[in-house]
Amino acid sequence: MIYGYARVSTAQQDHSTQIADLIKAGAKKIYKDKYTGTTSNRPEFDKLLTQLKKGDTLIVTKLDRLARNTQDALNIIKDLNDESIILRILNLGTIDNSPTGRLIYTVFAAFAEFERDLIVARTQEGKAWAKANNPNYHEGMPRKYSQEQIDFAWKLHVKNHMSYSDISKKIGISKATLYRRFREIRDNRK
């Protein structure tokens, strides 16, 4: 069976051009969604995936109609290839277990790896810059409590001799956070 899949991003858009292209390319049954490409919520696409069987063909007009990003495309293509389902992307070609199909998949995989490497490199550069230029830089999750709140808790502990439990009850900061942040204060004073 030859299936088609059309997706538009907004309710104002319509599928008519994609559907015409899919029919012209030989699609016998067409599934369509109206969801942005950044969401994983594509109920018709999910339904389509359950219908596909070995030897079937799935046609889409463009790669961005099929997947949210490069990694998503690779995962979908791999799953389709594993099930011996042929994928035709009208503006790219056929992706199957043929030499050409494997070449297209390999090129996608290379770009996905390149994209991941660029993201990691940019993230590391940003962290290095922040560490060098931002005295309040803290790696990891943003801190829930300000330095003023921690200083107040520290004052309660040191000057008023309050226990971690009492401070936690009084101002709502967990004991684990108090231990960690007080350790930082002690380390900074050495």
Score class of each variant (00 low, 15 high):
Gly126Tyr: 08
Thr177Ile: 07
Ala109His: 02
Ile185Arg: 13
Phe182Cys: 07
Tyr145Cys: 01
Ser9Leu: 06
Ser9His: 04
Gly172Ser: 02
Asp56Gly: 05
Tyr5Lys: 09
Thr17Glu: 12
Arg88His: 14
Leu118Gly: 05
Lys131Glu: 11
Lys190His: 10
Val8Ala: 00
Thr100Lys: 11
Glu139Ala: 12
Lys144Glu: 11
Arg183Tyr: 02
Lys34Thr: 15
Leu156Met: 12
Met141Pro: 03
Ile185Met: 06
Thr36Met: 09
Leu118Met: 05
Asn75His: 09
Asn81Met: 13
Leu66Asn: 11
Thr61Tyr: 05
Ser9Val: 03
Pro43Thr: 12
Ile95Asn: 09
Gln13Thr: 09
Lys62Glu: 14
Val60His: 03
Ile2Lys: 15
Asn133Ile: 04
Ser174Pro: 03
His138Trp: 02
Ala153Pro: 04
Ile150Gln: 06
Ala67Tyr: 10
Leu58Lys: 13
Asp72Thr: 09
Ala11Val: 03
Glu83Val: 02
Ser16Tyr: 05
Glu184Ser: 08
Lys144Pro: 00
Ile119Glu: 04
Asp82Glu: 15
Asp21Thr: 01
Arg102Ser: 02
Ile77Phe: 01
Val107Arg: 11
Ala73Phe: 01
Asn97Thr: 09
Ile30His: 08
Thr70Lys: 10
Gln124Ala: 07
Thr57Cys: 06
Pro135Cys: 07
Asn97Ala: 09
Ser163His: 07
Gly126Trp: 03
Ala6Asp: 03
Glu125Pro: 04
Asp82Ala: 07
Tyr179Val: 12
Thr94Val: 12
Asp72Gly: 11
Asn75Gly: 04
Gly140Met: 06
Ala110Met: 11
Glu113His: 13
Ala6Ile: 00
Ile167Lys: 06
Thr50Lys: 14
Pro99Gln: 09
Thr57Phe: 04
Glu125Gln: 15
Gln147Cys: 03
Asp64Asn: 15
Phe108Thr: 04
Ile19Ser: 07
Ser163Lys: 08
Glu83Phe: 01
Tyr164Thr: 03
Arg88Glu: 15
Ala112Val: 10
Gly101Leu: 11
Lys47Ser: 07
Gln18Trp: 04
Asn41Ser: 12
Tyr145Ile: 01
Ala20Trp: 03
Glu44Ser: 11
Leu156Lys: 14
Ser84Glu: 15
Gly55Val: 06
Ser165Glu: 14
Lys32Arg: 13
Trp129Leu: 10
Thr70Gly: 06
Trp129Tyr: 07
Leu92Arg: 13
Thr70Arg: 13
Leu66Glu: 08
Ser165Arg: 15
Leu74Met: 08
Thr38Ser: 12
Leu52Lys: 09
Val8Cys: 02
Glu83Ile: 00
Ala153Leu: 05
Ile119Tyr: 02
Lys170Ile: 00
Asp151Glu: 13
Ala176Ser: 10
Lys170Ala: 05
Arg42Ile: 02
Ala11Asn: 12
Leu90Arg: 08
Pro135Ala: 03
His157Val: 06
Leu90Phe: 01
Arg180Tyr: 02
Thr50Phe: 00
Ile85Glu: 05
Arg88Ile: 12
Gln149Cys: 00
Gln12Tyr: 02
Leu49Asp: 01
Phe111Gln: 11
Gln147Ile: 13
Asp33Leu: 07
Gly26Glu: 10
Ile185Thr: 08
Asp96Ser: 06
Thr106Val: 00
Thr94Cys: 01
Asp33Ser: 11
Lys169Asn: 13
Lys62Ile: 01
Ala11Asp: 14
Tyr31Gly: 03
Ser146Met: 08
